[in-house]
C-alpha cells in the first residue's frame, strides 16, 4: 500500500494500524536477532561481509578490530636513520615537529640506506596532540626514517605526554657536541686569520663563521601578486587614444 493512498478517516486508521504493526515487527525482528553478534574481524577477513544481522557493538577495550600493518596513525622516527634534514618540520602544516640541529665536527656515520649523517638532532620532538595525520612528513623524508605506525590508542591523562621525544642525545651530550663544533670553528677561523694576515680587517668581519650553531634557513617569502583585472581590448584602445 502506498502511503496516503486512502486519505480518509478509516483509510488513515487502516494505514496507521498496518504501518504500526510493520514497525513493531521490524523492531521485534531486531530484538530476536540480538542473539547473533558480529565478530571483531578486520575488513580483509573473508567473513567480513557475512554478518548482516545481530549486534554490531564492538566492546572496544576488551576487543578490537585489527588494524592493517600499513595503518597511518602515530608517527615514529627511527633516529639512527635520520639525517636531521628538517624537511618534515618544514612541510608540517600544523608545525607539530620541532627540531634543534647541531652541526657535527666530522661525519657521524651512515644511515641504513647509505646516506651520510652530518648533523646531530639535539631535539626531535613531535607533538602528537597537534598532528593532523596528513602524512606529508613521511612523504618528504629522504631516508624514510619517519613513518606512521598502526598504534592508534595512545591517549594520555596529561597533554604534555603527547609530545614524543625521538632525539637520542642527552642535554649534556648535546652541549658537549655544540662546544666541540664551536672549538673547531674557532680553530678554523684562527687558521684563516693566520693565512690572510695583513688583509683588510673588513674581510674577517664579513666571513664571520656561524658561531652560534645557527643554521641559515632559506627564507621563503610568499610574494602576493596583485590581481590585475583583464581589460577588454577596446578599453585599452580607449586609453591609448
Amino acid at each position: 500500500m502506498t502511503k496516503g493512498a486512502n486519505n480518509t478517516y478509516f483509510g488513515n486508521i487502516r494505514e496507521g494500524f498496518s504501518s504500526l504493526m510493520k514497525g513493531l515487527f521490524l523492531t521485534l525482528k531486531h530484538f530476536v536477532d540480538a542473539r547473533f553478534r558480529r565478530k571483531p574481524i578486520p575488513v580483509f577477513d573473508k567473513d567480513y561481509f557475512k554478518y548482516d544481522k545481530g549486534i554490531v557493538t564492538l566492546e572496544y577495550p576488551h576487543e578490537a578490530i585489527p588494524v592493517p600493518d600499513n595503518g597511518r596513525y602515530r608517527l615514529h622516527n627511527e633516529i639512527d636513520d635520520c639525517i636531521v634534514c628538517d624537511l618534515c618540520a618544514k612541510i608540517c602544516p600544523v608545525n607539530c615537529i620541532e627540531i634543534d640541529v647541531i652541526k657535527s665536527t666530522e661525519e657521524i656515520g651512515k644511515t641504513s640506506d647509505g646516506t651520510t649523517k652530518r648533523l646531530y638532532a639535539a631535539r626531535f620532538d613531535i607533538d602528537m596532540a597537534k598532528c593532523c595525520y596528513c602524512g606529508l612528513c613521511t612523504t618528504v623524508c629522504p631516508t624514510e626514517c619517519l613513518t606512521m605506525t598502526k598504534t592508534y590508542d595512545y591517549s594520555e591523562y596529561d597533554i604534555r605526554n603527547m609530545v614524543y621525544h625521538f632525539s637520542d642525545l642527552t642535554p649534556a651530550q648535546a652541549e658537549e657536541k655544540k662546544k666541540l663544533f664551536e672549538e673547531q670553528q674557532k680553530q678554523k677561523a684562527k687558521v684563516e686569520v693566520d693565512k690572510n694576515k695583513g688583509n683588510v680587517e673588513d674581510s674577517a668581519l664579513k666571513d664571520k663563521p656561524a658561531t652560534e650553531g645557527e643554521v641559515k634557513k632559506p627564507v621563503f617569502k610568499p610574494v602576493i601578486k596583485p590581481v590585475i583585472p583583464k581589460k577588454s581590448p577596446d578599453q585599452d584602445q580607449d586609453k591609448k587614444e
Binding site: H30, F31, D33, A34, G54, I55, V56, T57, E59
Partner: peptide, 12 residues
C-alpha cells in the same frame, strides 16, 4: 531491550 532493538549491547 532498547539496545537489542537498535543492535547494541547495552550496559555491560
Amino acid at each position: 531491550v532498547s539496545a537489542f532493538v537498535q543492535d547494541r549491547i547495552g550496559p555491560t
